[in-house]
Design a protein around this nucleic acid. Sequence first.
RNA 1: GGAGAGGUGGCAGAGUUCGGUCGAAUGCACCUGACUUGAAAUCAGGCGAAGGGUUAAACCUUCCGGGGGUUCGAAUCCCUCCCUCUCCGCCA
Length: 437
Amino acid sequence: MLDPKFLRNEIQETAARLATRGFKLDVARLEELETRRKDLQTATQELQNERNAKSKNIGQAKARGEDIKPLLDSVADLGDKLDAAKSELQVLLNEIDSIALAIPNLPADDVPSGASEDDNVEVLKWGEPKSFDFEPKDHVDLGESLANGLDFAMGTKLSGARFTVMRGKIARMNRALSQFMLDQHTEEHGYTETYVPYLVNNESLQGTGQLPKFAEDLFHTQPLTGQSDNLDEQDARKLSLIPTAEVPLTNFARDVIYDESELPVKLTAHTPCFRSEAGSYGRDTRGLIRQHQFDKVELVQIVKPENSAQALEELTGHAETILQKLELPYRKVVLCTGDMGFGATKTYDLEVWLPAQNTYREISSCSSMGDFQSRRMQARYRAKGAKKPDLVHTLNGSGLAVGRTLVAVLENYQNEDGSITVPAALVPYMGGITKIG
RNA sequence: GGAGAGGUGGCAGAGUUCGGUCGAAUGCACCUGACUUGAAAUCAGGCGAAGGGUUAAACCUUCCGGGGGUUCGAAUCCCUCCCUCUCCGCCA
């Protein structure tokens, strides 16, 4: 959520900045709503003031033992007028609120402007794509032929499309990867390991920005009632599967006022992620690339505003370290204004080299959300000597997506006979074996 | 699953009997000042959040777990939901 002041006082500038990411702000509509809000709010508050003052008089008169009948008569119709004003104001506020909740974040100044992923800017390339003296197979062929290590048919039988069963050494490697990543981040990068719920409530989802706008991307334990943009009382108790550990981890900060000395908070967790992938029916239907369920090691930082830009560089570096230690070639791109996620001010994508596709594919996305999530969550900190608490900044990134890392290892470390060399960094996590198959 | 207790400011904790100068005693923490070479201790003062308003203030409104109700007026009374704690049962 943006600072309401942007929508009140700097709406033209705000609209212009939002336009760079392809979002059209209905300025005329908002201005009209704002004008009415101001009038109505003032009028309502005046009525409340009048009521409070008169009620106070009644109390005092009663204490003195005077006749309060005339006073009661004088407030007779006040209640109805107040109720009417209040409900009219509430309708208006709800409308403004639902508009505000659907406005994406403002891009940071140093984000390249552009309309689509074609306008993303490559920052660096790391490692050389290995040249094979045979035709490299893709991870599906490799995984299926390795003792049925990847069993897509079984996943479909049990659950449906985009679910997969892993067996034997492939399953072990999937586990090894997440263990390796967690150890790196906790032992080398200073993150606190956490274990979190995989089911979260709607407040948490609204805090990080998945709701109200992206309900269809998630799996819900119960269908949401209605299409309302605002959470009603019943919906607030329904749980949804997390699409990323960003949701529970970032919501640690919800309704918290940190002491300055507690920041930054750095959290990591290994969790499954569940995505309905609505709207992606035709894309990446083969293999592990796009699944309804996959594992991810997530990095989250809660920082002081002045540190968030630097923190994004560091957090992205932490994710890069994993790729470097696994010796997987990758490139780093900064997303353009048009390709960024809803709540991001700036995002780096890390894309790993996949030989079978002869291209780089996203394996991590690291973003600074500025105060966008903090404002929704009321996540604040108190600076030493400051009168009022300030909103913190939040960042998150994948470090890394485990399923896609498995794909990358299988494809990049394949040998001509279909076996897979275990990356050196992973050998200790694989019980010492150096080759699969 | 059964029985009971409770949710109040950053934290702890009064107030709820008998609704009215209660946005809320007190303590801790924090901020400012005095004392001190400095610090500690002590003393004095200040100190919840959100919104509106102002050059800045003043000032106004809302908030005592969420929602609803009664009333001129609700932290306080009623309904409902959520959460926490204790005891019993059950379970990994």
